[in-house]
């Protein structure tokens, strides 16, 4: 669905069902350079099981109007604006990678709006490899190939997509390439690299949180994920075996089961 946030057009997938403001809201926040497409194996389930879903395209990504927002702090504030725009008082947030940093910021800045946060591959900071950051800021498609290589665990490199016929690395890469390497991925990587407030934000969060981690994640190693969870008062950690950083796709089934249990407990639907 398309709607306006701060007078700019925003696209969000509603999980294949019309948006219903009477149902509890879950906002899904994608990772660097990506889009709502990455969440398709979580959003449709929640949308058909009692929730309202907004898998947003961040500004300048997917079908949302640009430019991309340059800092994680402002992106966190923008998520609160999204929730206001659809006239809902409180929501749960689900983030992946950079989306986790954004969820942390939003939940720490607007504690009254956020019921619970589900993180996938969540770290307290995402310092970027300087060469990768430089390639992305120059708009070099090699940045996408490097990102896809590092982001995927064995399933990405060999195969076995949960949806028959889909190819992990080529699909992920095409989501990024179909957007803008320079103006979306480059801006996102810089925002991640600049962001230093993750652990401070985490300490302010009082709502329940889960951090779902992959034991083969090279972008957010499990020690980093655990460190973040240690800084959130009411948090739990779940570790998925043989899984890289693209947890939401590589192990879509397991991550959905964990998320279902967590959200149903902390933000129940009727």
């Amino acid at each position: 669905m398309k709607f306006k946030v701060n007078n700019k057009e925003v696209f969000a997938s509603t999980g294949g069902r019309p948006f219903d403001e009477k149902k509890p809201l879950i906002v899904f926040i994608h990772g660097s350079g990506l889009s709502h497409i990455t969440w398709v194996l979580q959003t449709r389930y929640f949308a058909f099981h009692g929730y309202s879903v907004l898998a947003i395209d961040l500004p300048g990504h997917g079908y949302s109007e640009g430019p991309a927002i340059e800092s994680i702090e402002e992106q966190g504030k923008w998520i609160a604006d999204v929730i206001d725009s659809v006239k809902i008082k409180e929501a749960s947030l689900v983030g992946h990678s950079q989306g986790c940093l954004i969820a942390l910021e939003c939940a720490s800045q607007f504690p009254d709006k956020i019921k619970s946060i589900g993180l996938m591959g969540g770290a307290g900071a995402i310092p970027m490899n300087p060469e990768l950051l430089d390639l992305a800021e120059k708009g070099d498609p090699k940045a996408v190939d490097l990102m896809m290589d590092w982001a995927h665990g064995p399933a990405g490199h060999f195969g076995g997509h949960p949806v028959p016929g889909l190819h992990h690395i080529n699909l992920g890469g095409s989501i990024v390439i179909n957007g803008s390497v320079k103006n979306a991925l480059g801006v996102d990587f810089r925002a991640c690299d600049n962001y230093k407030n993750g652990f401070e934000a985490a300490k302010k969060i009082k709502c329940p949180a889960i951090n779902i981690l992959g034991d083969r994640d090279r972008m957010c190693p499990i020690e980093e994920g655990k460190k973040l969870a240690d800084n959130i008062e009411n948090s739990e950690v779940a570790i998925i075996e043989n899984c890289g950083h693209m947890i939401l796709l590589e192990e879509a089934g397991q991550s959905l089961e964990l998320l279902k249990k967590f959200i149903r407990k902390n933000h129940p639907a009727e």
Binding site: G159, G160, P164, G165, L166, H167, N170
Partner: peptide, 19 residues
Amino acid sequence: VQVLEERVAALEGGTAALA
């Protein structure tokens, strides 16, 4: 059949395949 689909998608540089 899925193995074949992913293999050909990989070789062609495609996002998905259907045999």
